[in-house]
Design a protein around this nucleic acid. Structure first.
Lengths: 351, 351
DNA sequence: TTGTAAGCGTTATCAT
DNA sequence: ATGATAACGCTTACAA
């Protein structure tokens, strides 16, 4: 019995003794009120009894709309990508769209695989595309199939010199840094060290944003930019160890706070300070970025800036919806950022 | 210029001066070798010059295969769901399938929303379905649309009394517990406490698996089951605090190890032991489950059992592929589990 | 080896 | 208000 015959609208029409057209109208809510409520009832009853399920594929074929958005991402990473997808999915689902996942392997030949992934999704006739790129800077690589497809697309975190005819959404890194510094300044901290990547250190993309935010935050708080408190990394393979080392180096310079590019670094910093018996936050407060789950459980719990990635995803989804409605790709949008204050800055109030 | 006209295979045929059939054959690799290599070249050239992209929707319409797998999940949770999807996606992509995301909001009316989600995906003519359920036990709720659709489906972590005609994959909780206990026993621990949910405590689903694994692990290591070292929770709202409390209670009973249902609880345990100045792992070793990212960064780094969720996803994907090939839904499959040894059991060897 | 034509399940156009 | 009929772009017997 599991093998029911597929019911088509034609069969429903026959069963109800009406035309297929009438069935179609009922299916689409009969906007112009062309079907008498009597036959409407008959048709609905027939649908029920036959357990009819419309074939959305056929509909898409005809309407040239699939109600499907492709999401592609390179450089997947522990959850950060997911949170964005989640936000986007929700925004899009509310409008009746589904998500079709593009290739999500990091892949060596990035631009090439990006192109083929886009091609595949376009072949499947997605109505729009969201592309979440790794956090590195890049140029218009791999986007060529999109450009002349006319399919609206939103790029998330796509740092590029070139002008591109797509919507853009960025994670709020700069705001994150500004808020972090403001938070620390608000606690009376004045010598706020920075562990990240400076422009002199060759920062691009999101690392650049964070650095600029750090400087802007200092300016907002009327604090001086102290060169010797700013450290730039070159290689990121061991952020934890780097954080430890840098913390050691900084000690002599008596900072009263350390703001770190990410939580990994901050964890290293905390470990180093713990080992030295430095009081956190009384002597030195520490702030990280990204608000990893782990931040709650280190000792002391780490204040970190949540990048609100779901919100970024929602931003991307809503922007895409507008574009699907015919609006032009606007100026870039930036996601919010929120300081999650914990013991590493405010002491023992909460876990 | 972004608005190129859509190119169809018919246009390619005209342009190349051949029949649409020939184009179609080339598109599908011409299995029977019905097209001369000359015309093949002509056709390929035409495709290139017109920048032809086949419309996969139309193909699906005809072949009644969409090369699309729907994935539905209830009770999403910080990343655990994602890792499974990732594994499945990879396995399926290798065989040319794409993932269509079903509704992924927790939702109050779970069974109802599950049904509509399944219906929607079926309407979109997915070739198969993977359903990742929350970790709670359930009955055949919400699966009725699937049963008589004849569409193959794999359920992940679906704990149910009833027989169901679907493939099933379970996260390797029981094995996880067995390995954890073996790991501890291997280190010479003999009084291994358990913080989880016992059958007497009303465990079902995965909590039951873990408990059974704990007992099996003890048996394997010829260790006695010591009733007083086993604690069962009722309410899970504050696992961290519960872990702290239980650790305190256990102290008097002199356990030499504590195995926790999850990392949250284990973090609480570690915190309590740290406060008491108990040496970990010399006096008491601690093991958690799930291997959160945070496990690496607590003090001391926590040994935890990785549930290898990507592998579970891969298992699910591959099982589904087999079912798509006509094989029957087999006996349930269980994912692997791997102890990630860290300082909380083996001392300071690694972070 | 190549071409013709039917059909997949819808929706949209145009008469009735 | 309702019903034929033609698309949408592709695959696939079957005919040439």
């Amino acid at each position: 019995m599991p093998r029911e015959k597929k019911i088509t609208s034609k069969m429903v029409a026959e069963y109800a003794g009406v035309s297929q057209t009438a069935v179609s109208f009922v299916l689409n809510g009969d906007p112009q009120g062309k079907v008498s409520s009597q036959t409407k009832r008959r048709i609905r009853k027939a649908m029920q009894e036959l357990n009819y399920k419309p074939n959305l594929l056929a509909r898409s074929m005809r309407t040239r709309k699939t109600q499907t958005i492709g999401i592609i991402t390179t450089g997947i990473g522990g959850g950060w990508f997911t949170r964005i997808v989640l936000g986007a999915e929700q925004a899009l689902r509310e409008e009746g769209y589904h998500i079709l996942l593009g290739s999500i392997s990091p892949g060596p030949t990035k631009a090439k695989s990006m192109m083929s992934s886009i091609d595949l999704l376009l072949s499947r006739q997605v109505d729009g595309l969201i592309i979440i790129t790794g956090s590195e800077s890049q140029n218009g690589e791999g986007l060529s199939p999109l450009e002349n497809s006319g399919v609206p697309a939103v790029l998330v975190n796509y740092y590029s010199e070139q002008e591109i005819p797509f919507g853009r959404v960025y994670v709020g890194y700069r705001e994150a840094a500004i808020r972090a510094v403001e938070h620390l300044a608000g606690l009376g901290k004045e010598r706020i060290a920075f562990l990240g990547k400076t422009m002199e250190g060759g920062s691009t993309g999101f690392t650049r944003e964070i650095y600029l935010g750090y400087k802007a935050g200092l300016a907002n708080a009327s604090l001086p930019y102290i060169q010797e408190l700013v450290h730039s990394f070159v290689d990121v393979t061991e952020p934890y160890s780097w954080g430890m080392e840098m913390a050691e180096e900084l000690l002599a310079l008596k900072p009263d706070a350390i703001y770190c590019l990410n939580d990994h670094i901050a964890f290293g910093v905390l470990a180093a300070l713990r080992k030295r018996g430095i009081l956190v936050p009384e002597e030195i407060a520490v702030v990280g970025n990204d608000d990893f789950e782990a931040a709650k459980f280190v000792d002391p719990p780490l204040t970190s800036v949540d990048m609100m990635l779901e919100d970024c995803g929602e931003l991307a989804g809503k922007l895409l919806l507008k574009m699907l409605d015919g609006e032009e790709a606007q100026t870039p949008l930036f996601g919010p950022a929120q300081v999650k204050a914990r013991a590493s800055t405010v002491g023992i109030l909460e876990r």
